[in-house]
Amino acid sequence: MTKQIILILCVFMCFSCSELSETKTIKLAHGLDINHSVHVAMVKMGEDLKEISEGKLALEIYPNQQLGSEREALELLQIGSLDMTKVSAGVLENFAPKLKVFGLPFVFRDKAHAYSVLDGPIGQELLNESEQYWLKGLAYYDAGSRSFYTKDKPIETPEDLKGLKIRVMESITAMNMVSALGGSPTPISWGELYTSLQQGVVDGAENNPPSFYLSRHYEVCKFYTLDEHTVLPDILLVGTPFWNRLSDQEKAWVQEAASRSVPYQRELWAKAETEALEEVKKNGVTIIRPDKSLFSEKVQSIYEQFQTDPEMAKLIQQIQETK
């Protein structure tokens, strides 16, 4: 009997040790191309995570909307079927309303101002905002400035948008912005946009230079207007069902790996923006640099809508006062 007990204890201990030494795999899905700076930064994050955790944690990445759209990925996080994702702040505002502030046109003076807000207490507060919706923010990735691109006519002033169907994300703020500028906002999934542009479902869209280039939308749209109406960050998130299963040590490893990837992604992004504009010009795209003040004046009505919400009005003021 004693030998049997010892044998059982040995088997149990061996099983426990093997369990402890097993690598936990974190599944991360996003909608971008593998050449995108965000994906490359995620690959680095996976390498850092493996190093930091000494092989106890690993990252498995599913790019190109393999597991669904950004909204679908968020819903998978909420129910615990997916661990991590990257979405635009514009999509996340449907789950955490305060994040609408990022979609306000011209809320940031320039990139330095945006970084100052995102890297400071306001940015951290907004990262935490989605946690009550089972989505925990880990970091911001640079997604540059969004501008309009069109098929058949250049956009030089807001008046040129009148009557045009412009693809937007599933974002109320983005829809309100296009409407304020005179266009007709049309929400379409990113994965369906190329075909929609080809078939004339929409006349144009709005996004940053690398996304315009890597999506090959320049093959259809030959006018790119750098009005830079919004500086909308990408947000790296984990689902709280997954997060709550991690030990404090594992949480620290994941956060450190995520934080390490941010400056690397920003460096890649800066290069990608320059290269994207050069490449689309080579492919026959006309780059237009309009008077931004004309666009800024047209969207002031959006700010007025937020004045009835004291909390949002205060947040906008705090952002504008950040140096």
Rank of each mutant, 00 (worst) to 15 (best):
F12T: 11
A205C: 10
A272K: 10
S16G: 00
S81D: 14
L7V: 14
E93M: 10
N64F: 07
Q318L: 13
M84H: 03
G239M: 05
S196L: 04
D33S: 13
Q320L: 15
P290L: 01
T2I: 15
Q318M: 12
I61H: 01
R216M: 12
V280I: 15
P187Q: 05
E47H: 08
K281I: 12
A112V: 12
E131S: 11
G103M: 03
R146E: 08
K100C: 06
E156G: 05
W269R: 09
R289C: 09
T173Y: 02
K151T: 13
G103C: 07
G183Y: 06
M42E: 13
R289Y: 15
F108W: 04
A41H: 03
V87Y: 00
E250M: 04
P241M: 01
T322P: 02
R289W: 12
T308N: 08
K136T: 09
E192W: 11
L28M: 13
M13W: 10
S37C: 03
S81R: 14
Y303P: 08
Q300N: 02
G123H: 02
F15C: 14
T308W: 02
Y115I: 11
P310V: 05
E206F: 15
K165A: 12
A270V: 15
M84F: 07
S171K: 03
E60T: 11
D203A: 06
V201P: 00
Q265C: 01
D248N: 13
V280P: 01
E321A: 15
D152R: 11
L197F: 09
E321T: 15
